[in-house]
Design a protein around this nucleic acid. Structure first.
Length: 470
RNA sequence: CGCGGGAUGGAGCAGUCUGGUAGCUCGGGUGGCUCAUAACCACCAGGUCGCGGGUUCAAAUCCCGCUCCCGCACCCA
């Protein structure tokens, strides 16, 4: 494997960032940091971005009386801020309203032209919302907002011949050439493919969707979300002028997405790429969702978790750690204040943090050269490479517990006076092991690892995870 | 309807493929240690493994039936 290209999905900026997207960022970032450590800094590219077009945003902006661009600028800034607050090491950030992206999406459209045709689109249109509604959105056949019956409206749109690629996609996914993980999701996608794939509408009349990228050669039509948003991944790679460096057959290309948007990433996106004659991603990893106190997060329930306040109180590392360690990698997981605090105290403060001080002090007393005990070997890591973040962290925690147990059994504080040479040797081994473990955990909690490094350099104890009052 | 996933001590999970005295983390209790962020270590309590049948010397694990929960196309990480 030569290079690795990792993306998170691009969140729609009609609402502020929440904890679920923070998890996706943390996952992508842990992968990026791991592969950088293993393959070298310049061998890895980690991409983030935002999805900024669409009638929903246009409408919301109008309601608040500001220009759509100003509106998306404001929310996008919050996503950028979240990345910074979480200490995310992304190499680039693609906004779908940027010029380079418009160019990229337009070019992708052109490359897919042979599979794009005009057809009547029938949909249920609510004139109050000024947008098409899906059957699912309706409540008793009425628009939930306006309590009116949406009109069946027909308009001419462009369609993409997705159905044509269904057999090929099935083949690629079955063989793992396009790997969908976890297995459960792969089966789900294969199930969808078996049920049959329809051609998809990829444009809207400009009158109904003005906030978007114009269809090349047809000023009356605007691209619908598929081509517009999904193409951000190749925009980030440099499409259409210089993407070959990253978007090629040799690079391991990984999309980290939520299970809710797996369908688009596993079927529509590869379909577009096949049509355009571009390489396909290698792996699509779909994570689950986070519930808050075992309930779906919703504004009306008031149980939405704000990542910013959490980070402010406990630090980015603790939040990243919880999201990667305690939300199952392949399923939904729960967040609650109690659980978070238990993990913060039990695993971070009492184990990883406290053990550092135990060892640094013992190292000092045994006259060990602590700064020389930094082991440096990042090997292959099947857990991380396989997105099993929980297992990966659990392994490290088990190792920390092992050292704690050995310390109790060995009683080095007695050995230091009775058998100083033996004590020094044992303590140095622990210090080496501890450094190794911390280095592995640095992918999850980079700032804490920096503190460990500092403690080793100076020989001074440091509070990795200070007690927090709650 | 159908398809897929799940149901294991108070909580969260592993074990099910390849049957053989039910395991881990947290929480609770008792004791130990004193190097450390009142941290660490040991031990103990606690489970009819969703329900009912069947196969077997032996079933959480295999087979049949049932109950309940969750997800399934353009809203959502």
């Amino acid at each position: 494997m030569s290079k690795v290209f990792i993306t998170t999905s691009i969140p729609y900026v009609n609402a502020e960032p929440h904890i679920g997207f923070a998890m996706e960022l943390a996952q992508g970032d842990a992968l990026a940091r791991y592969y950088r450590a293993k393959l070298g800094e310049d061998q890895v590219f980690f991409l983030n971005g935002t999805d900024e077009h669409g009638s929903k945003i246009d409408k919301k902006a109008k309601e608040t009386g500001i220009e759509p661009q100003k509106f998306v600028d404001r929310i996008t800034q919050k996503f950028i801020d979240l990345g910074k607050a979480l200490n995310i090491s992304n190499d680039d950030f693609v906004r779908t309203t940027s010029d380079r992206h418009k160019k990229s999406a337009t070019d992708l459209w052109r490359r897919c032209q042979k599979d794009i045709y005009k057809k009547n689109y029938k949909g249920l249109y609510c004139s109050g919302c000024e947008e098409f509604k899906t059957e699912k959105e309706l409540v008793d056949g009425l628009c939930p907002v306006h309590r009116t019956k949406p009109e069946p409206v027909e308009e001419e749109n462009y369609f993409f011949a997705l159905s044509k690629y269904a057999p090929k996609l099935r083949e690629l996914i079955e063989s793992d050439e396009l790997k969908i993980t976890p297995e459960l999701r792969k089966n789900e996608v294969l199930g969808w493919l078996r049920e049959g794939v329809q051609d998809i509408s990829v444009s809207r009349e400009k009158l109904k969707l003005s906030w978007g990228i114009p269809v090349p050669g047809d000023p009356d039509q605007v691209m619908y979300v598929w081509v517009d948003a999904l193409s951000n991944y190749i925009t980030g790679a440099g499409f259409p002028d210089s993407h070959e460096k990253w978007w090629n057959e040799e690079t391991l290309k990984i999309h980290v997405v939520g299970k809710d948007i797996l369908r688009f990433h596993a079927i529509i996106w590869p379909g577009l790429l096949l049509s355009a004659g571009l390489p396909l991603p290698n792996i699509i990893y779909a994570h689950g969702h986070i519930t808050s106190d075992n309930q779906k997060m919703s504004k009306s329930l008031g149980n939405v978790i704000d990542p910013f306040s959490l980070i402010q109180k406990y630090g980015a590392d603790a939040v990243r750690y919880y999201l990667l360690a305690k939300i199952p990698w392949d399923d939904d997981g729960d967040f609650s204040s109690d659980k978070f605090q238990a993990v913060y105290k039990g695993e971070l403060s009492d184990n990883w943090g406290n053990l550092l001080n135990r060892l640094v002090v013992l190292g000092g007393k045994s006259k060990s050269q602590i700064s020389d005990l930094k082991s440096q070997n990042i090997g292959s890591n099947p857990e991380l490479a396989g997105f099993r973040f929980n297992n990966f962290i659990e392994k490290q925690i088990t190792e920390l517990a092992r050292i704690n147990r050995e310390i109790n059994e060995t009683e080095p504080w007695k050995l230091i006076t009775s058998e100083p040479d033996k004590a020094k040797k044992i303590i140095e081994k622990w210090l080496q092991d501890y450094y190794q473990i911390s280095q592995e955990l640095s992918f999850v909690a980079p700032r804490s690892f920096e503190k460990v490094e500092k403690a080793y350099s100076t020989g001074q104890a440091v509070q990795l995870f200070p007690r927090v009052e709650w």
